[in-house]
Computed example of a mutant assay.
Amino acid sequence: MSYLNYLIAAYAVFVIVLAWDFVATQLQIRRQLRNARLRAVREAARSANNELTR
C-alpha cells in the first residue's frame, strides 16, 4: 500500500496554509499602516484647526 497520494495531499495542504498565513499577515500589516497614516493625517488636521481658532 502506497501513501504517496496522502503525502502529496498533506504537503499541499501545508503549503496552502503557510501561504495563506503569509498573505493574511501582509494584508493585516498594510491595513494597520494605512489606519496609522489616516489617524496621523486626522490628528494633524485637528491640531492645525485648533491653532487657527486660537
Rank of each mutant, 00 (worst) to 15 (best):
Y11R: 06
M1S: 07
L27G: 12
L27E: 04
A12G: 10
I16W: 00
Y3A: 09
I8F: 04
V13F: 01
A40M: 02
R42M: 10
E51V: 03
S2D: 00
V41G: 02
V15H: 09
L7C: 13
Q32L: 08
A36G: 01
L38C: 05
A9C: 12
Q28C: 04
N50K: 08
N35Q: 08
R34S: 08
F14E: 00
L4G: 12
A12R: 14
R46C: 11
A44F: 14
R31V: 00
R54S: 07
N50T: 04
I29Y: 15
I8L: 03
L18R: 07
L4E: 05
V23T: 07
A36M: 08
A48R: 00
R54P: 01
I29E: 13
N49I: 02
S2C: 00
V23A: 09
A45C: 13
D21Y: 00
Q32H: 10
I29R: 13
W20C: 14
F14I: 02
R30P: 04
E43A: 08
A12E: 07
Q32I: 01
S47N: 02
R30H: 08
L4D: 05
I16H: 00
I8C: 02
A9T: 05
R39E: 12
E43S: 05
T53N: 07
L52V: 04
V41A: 07
Q26V: 01
W20H: 10
E51R: 02
V15M: 15
W20G: 14
A19I: 07
R31H: 09
R34Y: 15
A40I: 02
Y6W: 11
Q26W: 11
Q28E: 03
